[in-house]
Every structure is written in structure tokens, then in C-alpha cells.
Design a protein around this nucleic acid. Structure first.
Lengths: 414, 414
DNA sequence: CCATAATACTTAGGAAAACTTACGAAAGAA
DNA sequence: TTCTTTCGTAAGTTTTCCTAAGTATTATGG
């Protein structure tokens, strides 16, 4: 099974777009040089993407004003007309379908790296109620001519079919036609993205020099995603980077997945609260209390044990994946820095390459919207196709057919 | 960083070669249909590869004789001229640099899947002695016009530079210029291949339908390699699929890597022998004794414990990698089938997807030579280049420059 | 045995992508 | 102003791969 561009030239289009994402601001000549392609080719592709509204041209004046004068090196010759991903026109509706909170934000192609949600509401416990809330939220948003709705979803998600296969903390989404529900509210293509995958791409968007890492997110559960060579690693199963459901020796807690002893039962917010409540029966078993408690008294043995178990599994994952960098996001950032430090040290000690001083473990903010847009660009703007026999069909089924022609119609494969 | 074919058309050449490897025997038309390319294109590439001596044409008569007549469906129309990887002319010298044994075999491009070494000798403990033995062995082999020497090496190997970074069981190879030593004996390009990577590709060669799996090899150590989408997964570190040096809770044995408690100290042949000797102080602590003992009395607790620890780590690896298939090779095959069965059941129970009946764990023979040739085809025959800036330079440094022009000179990038 | 159908392979011609070369445009430097 | 340098685009060429058409080789059915 070979993956080839849907149309000759799409491969170059992809790489130009990726390079522009990394450079932020670049002229056609910069892109050509940086990609090793000829100026005319780079220029043609840039023009095409400008035409589509994916890129925008920035006048020199605005660049001058934006960048400090000292920062700018005066170059000889005719100055280039600078390009960047379009930041002005909202093209996508980004959505986080969280266990407790649903959030929405209109997103341009050149999204900013920090999440900024414009509408938030508590996630309902039934599909119908949730769609109703979505309808109300839609009234507060003025988005039109959407290229797509991008949804970050927890659990095990089969992205091509738009189905949630398994979601222990949000059971009603399982085998539900979420794209169909959402298309009742916005008549646009809907794309589901497994949440840790979105977070990993978001981190990559904000740190384009980091080509390979394992992202681990802590929250209602524990999830991971793997970035290899700047892209999500492609796996046969609908989820990878899964480390929440690896058993921890000596742990007897039952997990939502049906097994006993999963890491998730120790280090998820719920798991931590359970340990906290056991250690301090009289304290209020709420997350805020736990956080304040640890800030005041430091990490206690039950927390350190959970961190050690987590670190062992992360270290083993780095070994197997052949990676030297782990990025941690989520609830751990709300605890004192020493807590993360303990985890990071244990990860470095436990991993083979850490013994050679080659492993990093860093904490980072969640960048969900940037990740969603990265997925959208990857799949919508420059689709690829899969050739396994005679027929080449689109690799990404957009979870129901398009009601309206894609803005890229005519540029994708027949 | 983008990887592109060194020359337009190499991508197609690669995929045609891969397809022919999978089909075994195919006509130009079969290849064209199977790859979705036009007949003229497939024909041109096939002719080119025939010219280079990579493929051979097989007369119908010989095919008829080889395949049982009943098996062959008489087809209408002109029969195709069947092609396959050249099996007649030895092009490579395959070598296994083992901890205790060094073995050699001349290999054609279309190697058979079972290993068949023609020369074997005990691996010396110094480089000079080893090269001397190699000289003697060379006298027994009549190979000429070699395209390359392919060496399977244990430990942590930086394949591009041809250096062994770390080899706890074969210390003298560390930071030694092995390619240089070997080129004293055979004046040909030398390519080092980390041994589990070779084994994984060899398994893939014999089972072309298995596109994604984790191979775990048991022997003097424990190593793994990951096949994703039919190819070795590309990682930033010189090794991946590493699971021998993941710590096992409660294990206090010191490991050659400097750490304590690595899985390898439990399940490597040496580790098993140590456990065996502890359980049966009076028995002869040799591998053959251990094997006979277990065949007679079945698996004892010390073995079951080591298997359980191994299974947990394999299961965790499958989760993280998003894989559903584990292939086991090596010393475990010499023990009774029940031993492997115990391991396989534990792997399936422990992995997330195993709970959905999606995980397989199978035992297989080592196919080292086939794997070596697969690497050679991938790197030598149709090299790719890496474009990170302006210059595109060969991705694979052949560990010292070519003394003689490659047979593919004129077909690779400038 | 010969015509016909089916399949394999080759040749010829053309379309698409991307390259090289060439040239006008826009800035700083002399 | 004029020269130099760099940017962007236009024109022509090369490469690659496709479609169409022609030739070769087999089985089948009279």
C-alpha cells in the first residue's frame, strides 16, 4: 500500500505549506531556496495557495512595524513580498468536546498557537441535549462559508469514519454519528480528531524545530501521541501512543476499560483524587483542594508513587519508539513545578538514552486549536490518496459526504 | 526535512521492486495493474532493472515445471514473460557478526527466506584475530564483483556512519571501524545493519502481507524492531524497538548497560541460565541442560515470572506503537511450545487491543539473510536523498567511500 | 487448419510538472 | 544617476508518465 499525492504537485504544495508554517513569514524566493525548488515553481504554488485564500501577502510596511527594527537585518536587493498563512479570515470552526466542557472558536488557517475559545458550555450527558446547546452556541458565533468543523474528541476515535469507538468518560459519544449531529448545526464538513493527536500537532506547530517527540497529556485520562519526522506517526490501529491502559504492577484499581491496574487509575485527575481522599479522609475531595494541598505541603508518597509508575511507562515508551523527547501537558501543570521535575527526572533516569544524557522531558501548554488547524490543513487543503490496487480513492472520508463543494474542488483528485 | 527520491522515477522503481518482492513472480502487465501505473511505465522500469541485473526473466517452461500443473489456471491470451528478483547470481556477501559465531553466505538479490550460511567460525575476542579468521573464511568463498558486504551486528548501531555505539556482549566492536576492517578482506561497500532490524525485514520478506508488527528477538540479549507500513519505522535515535533495557519492578540484577533491573537480565539466555542455576544449583548450568530440563518438567515459576515480565513490556509496546501483531524469534523457539504459548497469552491479555480480540502473537524463525538483502535493496539499488536545505546529498553514507563505482552509477543522484 | 478473442508487450505521441534561462522590477550603494 | 543585488515572472526545455494504437502470442471454436 503506497501513499502518493492525489495530483502531481501536491507533494510540493504540502511541503511548501509546511515550510511556511515553520518559517512564519517568508518570500517566494525564501521558500524556493529553503525547499530546494526553483523560484518559478515555488512562485506558482504560492500563487495558487493565495488564490485559494490559504495564504496572505503582507505589505513590507506592516512587517517593519511588527518586527523591531533592530531585529531586522537590512538586505541588499529588491525586498521580497512576504507571505504567511492567512490570519484574518476565519475558515474553520474549532471545537473541543471535553468530558466536562465543550468549547468553540472560529479559526483562520494561520491560527495563533495559544488556545482562545470564544464560547464555552458544560457538556451535556445526552446527544440531544448537547446538540441543543450547540444550536444556542451557534447563535453567538458569526461564522460563514466554513471550510469545515474540527472537533477534538477524547477516547479511541476512528478518524477516517468519524466514529468514537470507545470513550470511558463520555460514553454517549460511542458509536454515535457525531459528524451528523454537528452538521445539523453547521452545514459543513466535520472532522473528528483524537484529542492527544491534536495536542501533539499543536505543540509541533508552536515548536516547529521539534520533529520527533512523545506527547503525554494528563487530565480526565492519560493519553499520548507520537510525532515522527514532524508528522503524526501512522499506525494501523485507530490509536497509538496509548499508555493510559498499560497495567502497573501492584495496582488493583478497576479501570473504565474493563481491566484492572491501568496506569490511568493512578495518575488521571480522578485517580489522583482517589489517592488523595484515601490519604486524607477528612479533606474535601475536589481537584482545587488537592492542588492547594500539594502547593502547601509538597508531594506526598501516594503522588510520588503514581509519578514513578508513570515515568517508568513513559521511559519504556521512549525506548521502544526510539525517541529522545517527552512533552507533558495538562493537569500536571497545575501542580507545583517540583512535581513535574520529579516525573521528568524519573523519565530520564529510566530511559536508555537518558543514561547518555540524550533525553529531554519538558512541560508545555495545551495547544488544541493549533493542532486542529494543522490536521485540517493536512487533510483538507492538500489531500493525499492511497493506491492499493487500480483505483485511487480519497484517503480521508469526511464523515458523510460534502453538502457543498469544498473550497478546494477542482484541486483534489477526481 | 523532506525525503524525496534522488531522481524522478525512483519512487516508482522502489514500489515496483517492493511489489515484485511481494508477488514473487509477476509479468510486466501484472506489475502495472497491481501498482496502478501504465503498462509502458512498468515495462520501462522492469527493463531497466533487468539491465542492472536486479531482476531475471523466467521462461514459461521453468515456471510450469516449478508450479504444479493443477495449481495453474490456464488463462486466455498471450502469456506474460515472468519476472522475479535475480536468484542466480550472488551479488552480496551476507555476514552475521554474532556474539559467539560469525557466519557468511553469498546472497543473490532474490534471496531465499531461510538462512543458509556457507561458512561459520567462532567469533574472536579481538578485532585483529577476527579479521584474520575472516581472511581464512574468504578463501573458502568464491565471490566476485560484489555489490556490497552486508553485516548483521548486535548492539546499538549507527547504521549511516557504520559505527557500533554500544555492544555489551561484543565490546571490541564499539567505536571500531568495522567497515574498514571488512574492506581489507573484500574490496566492496560495507553496510552494517542492527540485527533485530535485519530480522524484522526478513520476516516481512517471508510474510509480505504483514505490513505492521513488532518483532522481538530473544538470544544473548533481547531486542526489538518495528515494521510500519511494510518498512522499518524511521526514528531519530540509532535504535528503536528497544525493550531489553526497560526496568522490571522488583528485579535487582545488574545489567551490562550499567543500570539495574533491565528485562534483558531476566529473559536473555544468560539471564535464564542464571535463574536456572539458582533454582537448581546442582544441575549443569548450560543452555542445552536448561532446554532438556524444561522439556521434561515443564515451565517452572522462575521461567513463568520472566515470561510475564516480558509480556507486560511487549503489551505496553504494542499499545504505544498502535500495533496488533508481535512476532517472536530466537531462543524461545527451542523451548517447548507451551512456553511461547504462555508468553503469547499474557501479551494478548495485557494489551489494550487484545481485549477486543485484535492482537496476535506468533513465533517465527530468524530470517537474517533475507533481511540483509532487503536493506541492501532499499539502500543500494534505489537510493533516496534528503533535502533539508539547498543541497541534496546521499542519505546513506556507505561507511567509507566506494573503492569501485557502484553497479548503479549513473542511476543515482549526482 | 484458420478465424477470432483475449491478453501481453512495445512504440508513438502528448500532457503535466518542474527545471533552466532570461528579463523586467525594486531596493541599497557608489 | 547608475550600478549591484535580489525578487518575481515569462518562455522554452527536459523529464516523466499517460493514452492510444499497433504487434505478438496464446486459447477457443468452427
Amino acid at each position: 500500500m503506497v501513499v502518493v499525492p492525489a495530483k502531481m504537485g501536491h507533494l510540493n504544495k504540502r511541503s511548501l505549506l509546511a515550510r511556511l508554517q515553520r518559517l512564519g513569514l517568508a518570500s517566494r524566493a525564501d521558500l524556493a531556496k529553503s525547499l530546494g525548488m526553483s523560484q518559478p515553481t515555488a512562485g506558482k504554488i504560492a500563487d495558487e495557495l493565495l488564490q485559494l485564500g490559504v495564504l496572505e501577502e503582507v505589505e513590507i510596511g506592516r512587517v517593519e512595524r511588527a518586527a523591531p527594527a533592530a531585529n531586522r537585518v537590512p538586505r541588499l536587493g529588491r525586498p521580497g513580498r512576504m507571505l504567511r498563512l492567512d490570519r484574518t479570515r476565519p475558515r474553520f470552526l474549532g471545537m473541543q468536546l471535553g468530558v466536562s466542557l465543550t468549547t468553540l472558536a472560529p479559526l483562520p488557517v494561520g491560527a495563533e498557537s495559544n488556545d482562545r475559545w470564544t464560547v464555552k458550555f458544560a457538556t451535556a450527558v445526552t446527544a440531544d441535549k448537547w446538540v441543543g446547546d450547540l444550536q444556542k452556541a451557534a447563535a453567538e458565533l458569526t461564522v460563514q462559508d466554513l471550510w469545515g468543523v474540527l472537533v477534538s474528541v477524547p477516547g479511541i476515535v476512528d478518524e477516517p469514519s468519524g466514529r468514537v469507538l470507545f470513550s470511558p468518560n463520555l460514553h454517549w459519544t460511542e458509536n454515535m454519528d457525531l459528524p451528523g449531529l454537528i452538521r445539523r448545526v453547521w452545514n459543513a464538513p466535520v472532522m473528528l480528531v483524537q484529542e492527544e493527536r491534536a495536542l501533539a500537532l499543536g505543540h509541533r506547530y508552536a515548536n516547529p524545530e521539534e520533529d520527533d517527540f512523545l506527547l503525554v497529556d494528563f487530565g480526565d485520562g492519560v493519553g499520548g501521541a507520537v510525532i515522527l519526522g514532524g508528522a503524526l506517526s501512522a499506525n494501523p490501529l485507530p490509536i497509538s501512543g496509548e499508555l493510559g491502559h498499560t497495567p502497573v504492577l501492584g495496582n488493583e484499581r478497576p479501570c473504565g476499560c474493563g481491566a484492572v491496574g491501568c496506569l490511568e487509575t493512578l495518575i488521571s485527575t480522578r485517580g489522583l483524587l482517589q489517592s488523595f481522599a484515601t490519604a486524607h479522609p477528612r479533606a474535601n475531595p475536589a481537584w482545587a483542594t488537592l492542588v492547594r494541598f500539594i502547593h502547601e505541603r509538597g508531594a506526598e508518597p501516594w503522588l510520588l508513587a503514581a509519578l514513578d509508575a508513570t515515568a517508568a511507562i513513559i521511559a519504556g515508551s521512549l525506548n521502544v519508539l526510539g525517541l529522545r523527547r517527552a512533552i507533558v501537558t495538562g493537569s500536571l501543570a497545575e501542580l507545583p513545578p517540583a512535581v513535574f521535575r520529579h516525573l521528568a527526572d524519573a523519565v530520564i533516569r529510566g530511559s536508555l538514552w537518558g543514561r547518555f544524557g540524550q533525553v529531554e522531558c519538558a512541560i508545555a501548554p495545551r495547544r488544541r486549536t493549533a493542532g486542529l488547524v494543522a490536521v485540517a490543513i493536512d487533510r483538507l487543503v492538500v489531500p493525499m490518496t492511497e493506491v492499493n490496487g487500480h483505483a485511487a480513492k480519497p484517503r480521508v472520508s469526511m464523515a458523510g459526504h460534502f453538502e457543498r463543494p469544498s473550497p478546494f474542488a477542482g484541486h483534489s483528485s477526481p
